[in-house]
Design a protein around this nucleic acid. Sequence first.
DNA 1: TAATTGATTGAATGCGCATTCAATGGAATT
DNA 2: AATTCCATTGAATGCGCATTCAATCAATTA
Lengths: 214, 214
Amino acid sequence: MAAGQDKPQTEKKPRTAPPEVRRAQLIDATITCISKHGISGTTLTGVTKEAGLSLGLVNFHFKSKDALLTETLNTLAAEHRELWMRAVKRDDLDATAKLSAIVDAQFHPRVCSRKKLSVWFAFYGEAEHRQAYRASSSHIDTERQEICADLCRWIIEDGDYAGQDAEGISVTLESLFDGFWLNMLMYPAKFTRDVAARQIMAYLATVFPKHFCA
Amino acid sequence: MAAGQDKPQTEKKPRTAPPEVRRAQLIDATITCISKHGISGTTLTGVTKEAGLSLGLVNFHFKSKDALLTETLNTLAAEHRELWMRAVKRDDLDATAKLSAIVDAQFHPRVCSRKKLSVWFAFYGEAEHRQAYRASSSHIDTERQEICADLCRWIIEDGDYAGQDAEGISVTLESLFDGFWLNMLMYPAKFTRDVAARQIMAYLATVFPKHFCA
DNA sequence: TAATTGATTGAATGCGCATTCAATGGAATT
DNA sequence: AATTCCATTGAATGCGCATTCAATCAATTA
């Protein structure tokens, strides 16, 4: 029965690991815990149990629970930024394709899973009184909104859309992103990734009919 | 200096008050506390201090802290519902006017103050793991979305908008409502009530050009 | 006026959790 | 092999908070 227990080479689990690995493990576990129990229900005991590590490690690798939460949000924000930034930086894409890519990124499974959405809104719920939480997202949100506005300006000029307002459209886009996210979290049956992306493309098609088709 | 202290008739403060009054006071104080410190930072000590009442009263007038929070959300939801429902019920308004009224209600100062928005999103942040929180808002949200869909259907028929999809538009509207709310909370400088209402009316004008004007 | 009822008070209780830290493990260096 | 150094452990600490409850207060009824 207990065969081969003295040479578990395939399952080498060194007791120690480099700090960056531990930090990543703890952040992953934090995401899982927040998605399961909310921020107020997330305890260090729970996080470390989820990660299979011992309680004291959080305060060793992070300064405090608060630092862990802030880092978790930063990680999430960075992951999201990278996804749409990659498309925006490609110079083989024109403005239309880039705007489409930003919409796609917004609803990409990697950042838009039920699990991650619940974490995002857990943080938004606390953002009002947590300067640190707001800082992570505000910079990135502003950046994306300005990029969208630039792309809209380019499209408006290219298509001679006299009546359209790039700033207004980008502000509306930003709200559609957030609004669909919230509704996908709250009412997943009615609001799916497909529905969200399709509706936003439909919106773009009504404002820029020569560039997008419904 | 201490004149007229023995007959404070103008400031009669009876020690006791009917339960409904106390409940309302406590709910008001809860809204204030959540907006200031978030749900996790809201303590019964804080709430009762804010209300000028004593600690034990919460568990006397409500079953528990959790019940107080649920009742607070219910109160908020009912206030909001009443605002747009009043317009929808008027039979002197046509579909176009009713849809406009729903948009106005969504950004009415009474329900869309910074204070209340922060409370809404505090609850949304916990909604994923709190069945009770979801129940309050889901019923009302669904109701409003279906009413909007009906109004859109009516307008589509009235205006012969062949290519438009009532369900899709109402779903987009719902997301615009929530998305602008979130952005108004997070970035109040850029996202004001006026901007939000105007952009949503602009959206309606692009999909229903014969009924709404930008 | 006395008795009854319901509202109010706040000190006391006990639990849950973030944080600390002395002890241990084990990899790298000498 | 001995030493050094950093990662790891988890029991112990102490605080903050929801909840309880016996005592108090005042309005209402008898």
